[in-house]
């Protein structure tokens, strides 16, 4: 079986891009770590399974491809384009779909969402472009006989959507489905030796929407900010709760 895992490089949480400052650091999108772990678990269970990790972006994104290889991906693929500005989910999906089209992947995995743009689109769009079926927000899955998978999607209010899906397919993985592993020493050494395959993004489609402004909503506290020392705050809080008959 051949599995492709899409990994995105995002700004380090807690450090946020101000319009005039370059982001101070990058990391692998947290939801993609769950996707990668899911691929590695399948590899452990099913013989002759290979796991490829792909990312599209400027040179810096090779860091997350390396990270995926250190976690255990067999090969890393870099779809290179040089501009620094963020691509839209549609653009990324187009690049990844055209990469994956003739490469016979049985399953393509992404995280359910990116920590940075929070759009939850790329996986579904890859599937749409390739004409593959998909399931988003997957919390469990199982390969059934033939070329079908049984999948459960997490839905609102503790519901699960249970579905059957034909392979090849795209699954977007929700957090908590597993505990992503840390890189092992042997994989770190292997990844060090291994080259990342690189292809140029030739057919970057035009974006269908553009971000015109990024701004801080500002934090306007709605209620009372308790003042004083820690102890004074504790006393005040107890008084308030008492007054409201909550204690």
């Amino acid at each position: 079986m051949k599995i492709l895992v899409c990994v995105k490089q995002v700004s380090v949480p807690g450090t946020y891009p101000a319009a005039d400052k370059p982001p101070p650091g990058f990391r692998i999108n947290s939801y993609d770590e769950y996707a990668l772990e899911e691929a590695l678990l399948l590899k452990e269970r099913i013989e002759k399974t290979t796991v490829h990790a792909v990312s599209a972006g400027p040179e810096r994104v090779t860091a997350v491809i390396k990270r995926a290889m250190e976690m255990g991906a067999d090969q890393g693929m870099h779809i290179r384009y040089e501009q620094e500005e963020q691509l839209t989910p549609y653009q990324v999906a187009t690049l990844i779909a055209s990469y994956a089209r003739d490469r016979q992947y049985d399953i393509i995995l992404t995280g359910v969402m990116a920590d940075d743009d929070m759009q939850m689109q790329t996986g579904q769009m890859i599937a749409g472009i390739l004409g593959y079926p998909y399931a988003s927000s997957v919390v469990s899955h199982e390969i059934r006989e033939g070329r079908t998978m049984y999948v459960e999607r997490e839905c609102d209010a503790r519901q699960r959507q249970c579905l059957e899906i034909e392979m090849p397919c795209v699954l977007t993985i929700q957090s908590g489905i597993n505990r992503p592993r840390y890189p092992s020493l042997s994989n770190i050494l292997r990844a060090k030796q291994q080259k990342i395959e690189s292809i140029n993004a030739l057919d970057l489609p035009e974006a269908r929407e553009t971000e015109v402004r990024l701004f801080s909503p500002g934090i306007k506290p709605k209620g009372t900010i308790l003042q004083g020392t820690r102890r004074e705050k504790a006393v005040q809080l107890l008084e308030i709760l008492h007054e409201k008959a909550l204690l």
Partner: peptide, 8 residues
């Protein structure tokens, strides 16, 4: 942060 997006 909030992003303001315009459709094309």
């Amino acid at each position: 942060l909030y992003a303001e997006v315009v459709s094309k």
